[in-house]
């Protein structure tokens, strides 16, 4: 069972959150090429989300080449044919997406970017 968390207060819609987290699991190596993902139905039940949302996430990740559906067998993490630089770019984009959400939240609470950088260092040292 893969671990995914949904945040109903996030400015990102659910399907963007799911997509980002699955991408992150792939980029960080938690999911390896050839690993099977839960079926749309299983993941929808696990998270109590609309199966159409999961279907949309899988469809888009498949279009991006991250996932592949094998007829009748399910959905798998695709063997990545991408060069290292492209993967590096994706890793950066994944972190950027998370940072954008944190920045938005932090600014809403009145912190400047500099404050947030300081906080991040503090947290890192905990």
């Amino acid at each position: 069972m893969i671990k995914l968390n949904l945040d109903f207060r996030s400015p990102l819609p659910l399907f963007e959150q799911l997509k980002g987290q699955i991408r992150l699991l792939a980029l960080s190596g938690v999911l390896q090429p050839g690993d099977q993902l839960p079926s749309i139905r299983q993941l929808a039940v696990q998270l109590t989300v609309n199966p159409n949302t999961v279907a949309k996430v899988y469809r888009e990740l498949e279009q991006e080449g991250l996932l592949e559906t094998r007829q009748g067998r399910g959905c798998f993490l695709a063997a990545s044919g991408k060069p290292a630089e492209a993967l590096d770019g994706e890793r950066r984009e994944a972190v950027r997406a998370e940072l954008r959400a944190i920045l938005a939240k932090g600014k809403a609470l009145g912190f400047s970017t500099a404050d947030l950088v300081r906080l991040m260092k503090e947290v890192d040292h905990e």
């Binding site: 749309i40 139905r41 929808a44 039940v45 109590t48 609309n50 199966p51 159409n52």
Partner: peptide, 14 residues
């Protein structure tokens, strides 16, 4: 409640 949600989500998937 979880069981009931599960049954509803499965129906939506089908």
């Amino acid at each position: 409640r979880r069981q009931l949600y599960r049954a509803i989500v499965e129906e939506l998937a089908e």
